[in-house]
Nucleic acid binder design. Structure first.
Lengths: 341, 341
DNA sequence: GCCGTCGACTAAACCGGTATAGTTGACTAA
DNA sequence: TTAGTCAACTATACCGGTTTAGTCGACGGC
């Protein structure tokens, strides 16, 4: 049982060299004799020396931690399994790198910006993940001003100095629409996500484009904030009309599941009377009835890629954009040809 | 625009005092003349001095951060909104305290213990939240060995030196069973959670006790790992029997929702042919059909209380247990009197 | 034989705070 | 008058690394 307070000075003393040389040897830098280096490393190992992160932080001005700030309303956050999975992916990379993840969950966008500032002021993190990109996202200029490395989850709409790790939503939405069109649907509606969020509008645009490409009339679209409740309301609205859509493409799964509930409640059978598709392929999809046809994302893979890219950026000063395999359609039981009449 | 590198030495120089005195003044400690103190604080403010967390960390051997290590299989983590809400609650406290949350998501229990060790070795955190308590939880002796303050979410089964912040599950389960019994159900089954997790077995015991108290025969119980998939399987098993239960009490909402799906698939109507209840009151509950009768927890409140307690413990060396309002039954539409025959 | 260069290594400053041992001067008690 | 006490304040060590300036000896070129 060692008292566990081995410092670099202890190593230096027992190895009979100076403190500085030990530091050189341990960070394998030139200027240390081969034989001496081996001896130093050996002594360090024998003594059970562990570098002090705190001391290193102070002298190198780094924190060896990455940050993730989430600004979502609690309801959306709670029902969307994106972040838990994404974080699990991030961690799978960080854990091998002796780096930590600092997480902040904030109630709104003002505190979000404030949080980035204080994260930097306190030197808590060396880089951050930028998720839930918004139009003309204020975080990008802020972070450049603060000089904080970052990776964006998806491609921002304005200029960005940061590498983007992207999963293209478009093909998934397009495939959904095409699939429904091929089944014979013509009146297809879209329950869109938040217009403030880039992936909300991207999916929406993809929907409109796909409708046009399929030669269908413009589909009805209703905006939401991505929450389950909003998905429910939107569905109720769509289905309460005199002539209603025969299919609905939802911008995420929680809303689609809420839509399923509304349909059941109204006695509208799925998929006989109404076809629906979701987006994200959360676990629930396989277990609701009928199982939800949806578009797979892969948040954990995304997390791994984002972490790898961010680390690379921090180490080498630059990193390439990464395009992950596009989301693709998972066909289950929630869509069928429209009823004849 | 100041160059933003104001140190305590700068303050000392402009105030015409020594470095140490500035430190005393800023941490308002005795030994500083009233007038001098005011002057020092004024100078610090004028210069825009911000304490360096890193320097303070090194000299005080503290990190001003709290840790949360989550060891859950990805599927359970993703479908359970407990942590996002809990974390939001924690953050609402931490953000006012200039403290950060370090999050680790690990795949299994061995790496979990290892993670605590390295969190301490690296001095990343000053205290941790212990969630998902297990029987004879190995983390408790580990943390005491490591000398790390902690708060347990729920009361552990063995000895624990740590304050517990608890939401009593029992009344909620009891209320569910009594409610179903009053509706006339006699064959009530339980889809239990993981037997390794304390709250899994506690809910299960509460179920058994409540059945006995209601004068009902012992209910059938099937164990799961709390995942949606397991909930689905368990339901399928229960409903596949010759004589099947007329009601099922689920240990959490995701499994109950999966159960709903299975029932629909089998053409079993809810609540006419089968009554079900969940646990946790996740957002989905209100939006599935029929809306799920469940037991409310309040993860965000729990998070706030846990954070407050942990901070108190760290500051004063001790903290009292906190018992939060017990979970209570939320009656919606997924239960009704059993069908006659 | 002498100077210049180079690699190996040491001493000490530095990062920015906190903590401790002293110093000083005013006030008090004997 | 003088030693003793105490508050106010200074100087300095310290946390545990990194980094820079500089020392020393060997070796090569002329």
């Amino acid at each position: 049982m060692s008292a566990d307070k081995v410092t670099i000075a202890d190593v230096a003393r027992t190895a009979g060299v100076s403190k500085g040389l030990v530091s050189f040897a341990l960070n394998n830098r030139p200027g240390v004799g081969a034989e001496t280096r081996v001896r130093i490393l050996q002594v360090a190992q024998d003594l059970g020396w562990k570098p002090s992160l705190r001391a290193r932080s102070l002298s190198t001005q780094r924190s060896f931690a990455l940050g993730l700030v989430i600004a979502r309303n609690p309801e959306v956050l709670a029902s969307d399994p994106f972040f838990p999975s994404f974080i699990a992916g991030v961690e799978s990379i960080l854990s091998t790198e002796r780096r930590a993840l600092v997480l902040s969950v904030v109630p709104n966008e003002e505190t979000e910006l404030q949080t980035y500032r204080s994260l930097v002021a306190d030197g808590r993190v060396d880089g951050v993940f930028l998720s839930d990109l918004r139009h003309n996202d204020a975080r990008i200029p802020l972070l450049t001003e603060l000089g904080l490395p970052a990776v964006t989850l998806g491609r921002p709409d304005g200029d960005s100095p940061y590498p983007a790790v992207t999963v293209d939503d478009t093909p998934g939405v397009t495939a959904s629409v095409r699939y429904l069109a091929e089944l014979g649907h013509r009146r297809i509606a879209h329950v869109a996500g938040s217009p403030n969020l880039l992936h909300g509008t991207r999916r929406r645009e993809a929907f409109a484009a796909a409708m046009a490409a399929a030669g269908l009339p413009e589909g009805q679209t209703v905006e939401t904030d991505f929450s389950v409740g909003a998905g429910s309301d939107a569905t109720r609205r769509l289905l309460g009309q005199a002539i209603r859509p025969t299919a609905i493409v939802y911008a995420n799964d929680p809303m689609a599941i809420a839509g399923l509930g509304v349909a059941h409640e109204l006695g509208i059978r799925i998929p006989e009377d109404l076809s629906i598709t979701g987006f994200d392929d959360i676990d629930f999809c396989r277990y609701v009835f009928p199982p939800l046809t949806t578009v797979s994302a892969a948040p954990a893979v995304w997390g791994r890629a984002a972490a790898t890219t961010l680390l690379h950026l921090m180490e080498h000063g630059r990193a390439d954009d990464v395009d992950l395999p596009a989301a693709r359609l998972i066909i289950r039981g929630s869509a069928a040809p429209p009823a004849r009449h």
